[in-house]
Design a protein around this nucleic acid. Structure first.
Length: 705
RNA sequence: GGCGGGAUAGCUCAGAUGGUUAGAGCGCAGGAUUCAUAACCCUGAGGUCACGGGUUCAACUCCCGUUUCCGCUACCA
C-alpha cells in the first residue's frame, strides 16, 4: 500500500569524524542515497538530502589525546576531508552539517528536555571509575591498564588494541586514567536511561507486522531478532566533557550519549537547511522518510531512533531503511586499523575525472543483498567493457557517424522509410525507462544501472543491423540511401539524449558531458523527458565528439593493488595497527620493529607469583567457543582455572600436562565459573597458542622465577 | 554459544508469492564486421542451484538438521 507521499526526506548515515571515508562507505550508503535523490529530483519531486559529520563520542576524544590536539581540531580536520570527498564524488547533499553545530546543540537538548519533562527517562546510579586528579568520570575508553590477556600495559577499558580482546574496565589490571595517569577510584554517578522495553509493543506492531514485506530481509531479520530477544533500558547520557551537555539541573559534566544525539543530527541539519519549514518534512504524515545506512547501524535506525521519535511524539517514522551489507576489498574485510581500504580522497587524486567510473563500479557491484567483493581487476574490467566498450562506444559511434554522413547536424526522420526495427528500438527506450523507475523506487540500484547499459547495448546492436557505413559507402549509394541513414542516426542521437537522462542519477558527470556534446541544456535531463524522441531538434548542429571515458590500463590497477598490499604489509610488519590507523597518510613512518614494553624493575616482576602446575582435568565450558575449565594441581592446593584455549587444545590431550600459572591474579568469573589464576601461553603472529611449560617434569607448585 | 543474513556457471553477482529447457556481465571457444577507444554484433561450451533428510503431483524457491562465510551479541588467551 504505497502511500500518497507529498515529499521525501532522505538521510545518509552521519560519518564519524575521526577518519576519511572509503569506498565501503560510499557503496553501502552514500552512493545509493545519492542515486535515489538525484532520480527523485529529476522526477521533480520534493526531496531533501540530509547528512553531516557525527562529531561526538569517545573515540574522537581519544584520537585528540593521541595526536595532542583538541577534539574540536580532530573533527574540524576530518569534517573538512569528508565533506570534500563527498563533493568530489558528486554526492549531492542539500546540506552537509555537523553535530558540533549550535543548531544541533539546541535541537538535541530540546529533544532530551521534552522527554525528560514528560518523565520518559529512568534515573539510575551506578559505580564508575573516577579520576580524582582531573575530577571527572571516565568512559571505558579513557581507562587504561594492563590487559589481562596479553599483558599490554596500555589496553583500553573496552578493548585491548594489541590483542583485540574486548574488555570491561573491571578486567584491567591496575587501571589508571588515560588523561592523568593517576590510579582510579570508584564513585557513584547518575545517568538517564531510556526504557526501550516500554516501546516493544509499538515496535513489534510497526516493524514485525507492518514492514514484513516492505523492508529488506537483512534489515527486517535483524530487527525481529532484537525485538524477540527483548529490549533493555539504555543509558542516554555519559560522563564526559565532549558532547552536548545534558540540559537539566545537576547534570554538570554529563553529555548526551552519542547515539542519542547523532540521529537527532538529521533533524538539526534539516533545520539548518530550512529554518522555516523544516518541520513540514519531519512532522507531517505525508513525508516519506528514508534512512540510508550500512548494516552496522540497523539497530539504531530501526529500533532506538524510532522509539525516541515515538516517545517524543510528533515526528514521522522512517518509511524504509534500505541498509546495505559490507563491501570487501580484494577478498578481505575493509579495516581502517590494518589500512586495508581504498580512501576516497586518494582515489580522486589517483584517478582524476573518473568519479563516474567509481560510482559505476560501486553501484554495479553494490552489496545490496550480501557482502560483496571489490577488486581492482573488476574495476578495470567493468570500466573497460561496460562503460568504455558499450556505453561510451555507442555514443561515440553515433556522433562520429552523424558527422560523417549527416554533415554535423541532427538528421530528420523520414516516416516514409521507417522500418520495424526502428520502432522496436523506440519502444525499448520507453520500456527501459519504466524498468529503471520501478527498480529505483524499490531500492534496486544495480538492476536499474544494468538497464542503462543494456539500452546502450541495444543501440549498438541496432547500429550493427542497419550498418549505415555500408549504406553510404559510395556517393551513389549515399544519395540512394540518405533517408535510411538519416533515420538510423536520428534514432541513435535521440537515444543518446535518452541515455543521458537515464544515466544521470548514476553517472552525473557523464550525463553533463553528453549534454555538452549534444548542445542541450541540463534541463533536458528532467526525468519526464525520458522516452521522448524529439529531444534534439532536427537540423541542429552538434559539437565534435569527445570520448566520454578513457581506458584503464593494466599498470594502473596493478599499482593500486600494490599500494594496498604494501600498506597492509607495513602495518602488519610494524605490529602497530594503531599507529597506522591514526595516521593513514603516514605509511612511510611505520617502523618494522615490534612495539616494545618499557623497562621494569625487579620489584615489578616480583609482584607476579608464577608456579608450575599440572592439569588434572579439563572440560569444555558450555556456551563458550574458546573456554576450557581446568583443574590444576599446584602442589599445596588444587585450583579451578578457566582458560580460553579451546580452539587450540582438546580437553583430552592436555590432561597431565605441566603448565605455568599466574597464581596471584585476582579471581574472575567467566560464564558463571570463577577462575582463580591464569595459564601462560605463547602466541605467534597467526594467533596460534602454545603452552609455556617447564622443560622437564617438575613437582607441581614449583615456583617460576 | 545465542540471534540475523548468505552459500547458484572458471570469476563477480541476479533469481516476488514453489510449476515448461536455472539467468546476466566478465572470462573462454568459434563466427561476422570495420562506423567506433582492436571496440561493437552473433553463436557456443560451462551449473547434481553447499550437504543430508522431509512436505508436495511438482522445490534453487517451503520445513528440519549439518557444514561454511559475514554481521550483531556473549566470551577470550
Amino acid at each position: 500500500m504505497a502511500k500518497d507521499y507529498k515529499r521525501i526526506l532522505v538521510t545518509a548515515a552521519l560519518p564519524y569524524a575521526n577518519g576519511p571515508v572509503h569506498i565501503g562507505h560510499l557503496a553501502g550508503c552514500y552512493l545509493p542515497s545519492d542515486i535515489y535523490v538525484r532520480y527523485q529530483r529529476a522526477q521533480q519531486r520534493d526531496v531533501k538530502f540530509i547528512c553531516g559529520s557525527d562529531e561526538h563520542g569517545v573515540p574522537i576524544t581519544i584520537r585528540a589525546m593521541e595526536e595532542g590536539i583538541t577534539p574540536q581540531d580532530v573533527v574540524d580536520k576530518y569534517n573538512a576531508i569528508i565533506k570534500e570527498s563527498f563533493a568530489q564524488m558528486g554526492i549531492s547533499f542539500d546540506i552537509y552539517s555537523r553535530t558540533s553545530s549550535e543548531v544541533h546543540r539546541q535541537t538535541s537538548q530540546a529533544f532530551f528536555k521534552k522527554m525528560y519533562d514528560d518523565g520518559l527517562f529512568e534515573e539510575r546510579e551506578s559505580e564508575q571509575y573516577y579520576d580524582e586528579e582531573k575530577k571527572m568520570f571516565l568512559a571505558d575508553r579513557y581507562i587504561v591498564g594492563t590487559c589481562p590477556v596479553c599483558g599490554n600495559e596500555n589496553a583500553y577499558g573496552d578493548q585491548c588494541e594489541k590483542c583485540g580482546s574486548t574488555l570491561s574496565p573491571e578486567q584491567l589490571i591496575s587501571p589508571r586514567s588515560a588523561l592523568s595517569n593517576a590510579p582510579l577510584v570508584k564513585r557513584m554517578t547518575k545517568h538517564w536511561y531510556f526504557p526501550l522495553n516500554n516501546y516493544e509493543g509499538f515496535l513489534k506492531e510497526w516493524i514485525v507486522e507492518g514492514k514484513k514485506d516492505e523492508w529488506k530481509p537483512n534489515v527486517y531479520g535483524q530487527c525481529k531478532s532484537w525485538l524477540d530477544s527483548g529490549l533493555q533500558p539504555r543509558a542516554m547520557t555519559r560522563d564526559s566533557n565532549w558532547g552536548v551537555p545534558v540540559p537539566i539541573e545537576g547534570a554538570d559534566g554529563k553529555v548526551l550519549y552519542v547515539w542519542f544525539d547523532a540521529p537527532i543530527g538529521y533533524i538539526s541539519a534539516t533545520k539548518e537547511l530550512m529554518p522555516q519549514g523544516w518541520d513540514t518534512y519531519w512532522k507531517q504524515d505525508d513525508t516519506k522518510l528514508v534512512h540510508f545506512i550500512g548494516k552496522d547501524n540497523i539497530v539504531f535506525h530501526c529500533i532506538i531512533f524510532p522509539a525516541m521519535l515515538k516517545a517524543h511524539g510528533g515526528f514521522v517514522l522512517p518509511d524504509n531503511v534500505p541498509a546495505n551489507e559490507f563491501l570487501n576489498i580484494e577478498g578481505r574485510k575493509v579495516s581502517t586499523s590494518k589500512n586495508w581500504a581504498v580512501w576516497i580522497n586518494e582515489y580522486v587524486t589517483d584517478f582524476p575525472n573518473m568519479e563516474d567510473t567509481l560510482r559505476y563500479v560501486l553501484c554495479a557491484n553494490a552489496p545490496e543483498t550480501k557482502d560483496n567483493d571489490f577488486t581492482w581487476k573488476d574495476f578495470q574490467d567493468r570500466h573497460n567493457s561496460e562503460l568504455v566498450a558499450k556505453f561510451g562506444n555507442f555514443v561515440n559511434r553515433a556522433m562520429v557517424l552523424m558527422h560523417k554522413f549527416c554533415g554535423g547536424r541532427v538528421p530528420r526522420f523520414h516516416d516514409d522509410v521507417k522500418e520495424e526495427r526502428d520502432l522496436e528500438l523506440i519502444r525499448e527506450i520507453l520500456n527501459t525507462k519504466k524498468k529503471i523507475e520501478s527498480s529505483l523506487e524499490n531500492y534496486r540500484f544495480r538492476d536499474a544501472l544494468f538497464e542503462v547499459i543494456e539500452l546502450a547495448s541495444k543501440g549498438n546492436k541496432y547500429l550493427q543491423d542497419v550498418a549505415p557505413w555500408n549504406l553510404g559507402k559510395t556517393p551513389e549509394l549515399l544519395a540512394e540511401n540518405q533517408k535510411l541513414i538519416d533515420n538510423c542516426l536520428h534514432i541513435c542521437l535521440q537515444l543518446t539524449a535518452n541515455l543521458a537522462i537515464f544515466c544521470n542519477p548514476f553517472l552525473p558527470f557523464t550525463a553533463r558531458k553528453i549534454c555538452h556534446q549534444l548542445t542541450v541544456v541540463e534541463k533536458m535531463l528532467d526525468w519526464e523527458n525520458g522516452g521522448r524522441m524529439d529531444l534534439l531538434k532536427t537540423g541542429y548542429p552538434l559539437r565534435a565528439p569527445e570520448l566520454l571515458f578513457r581506458k584503464v590500463e593494466d599498470e594502473e590497477v596493478e599499482a593500486q593493488r600494490a599500494k594496498l598490499e604494501e600498506r597492509a604489509r607495513l602495518v602488519q610488519a610494524a605490529q602497530d595497527a594503531k599507529a597506522a590507523a591514526m595516521a593513514p597518510k603516514a605509511e612511510a613512518v611505520a617502523t618494522p620493529e615490534a612495539e616494545a614494553k618499557p623497562l621494569i624493575g625487579f620489584e615489578d616482576f616480583a609482584k607476579i607469583e608464577l608456579r608450575a602446575g599440572t592439569i588434572l582435568s579439563a572440560e569444555k565450558v558450555a556456551k563458550a567457543d574458546k573456554l576450557l575449565k581446568l583443574e590444576v594441581d599446584l602442589g599445596t592446593e588444587k585450583r579451578t582455572i578457566v582458560s580460553g584455549i579451546a580452539l587450540h587444545y582438546s580437553p583430552e590431550e592436555i590432561v597431565g600436562k605441566q603448565v605455568s600459572v599466574v597464581v596471584n591474579l585476582a579471581p574472575r568469573k567467566m560464564r558463571g565459573i570463577e577462575s582463580a589464576g591464569m595459564i601462560l601461553m605463547a602466541e605467534d603472529a597467526t594467533g596460534k597458542l602454545v603452552f609455556v611449560s617447564p622443560e622437564q617434569a617438575i613437582a607441581a607448585g614449583s615456583e617460576i622465577r
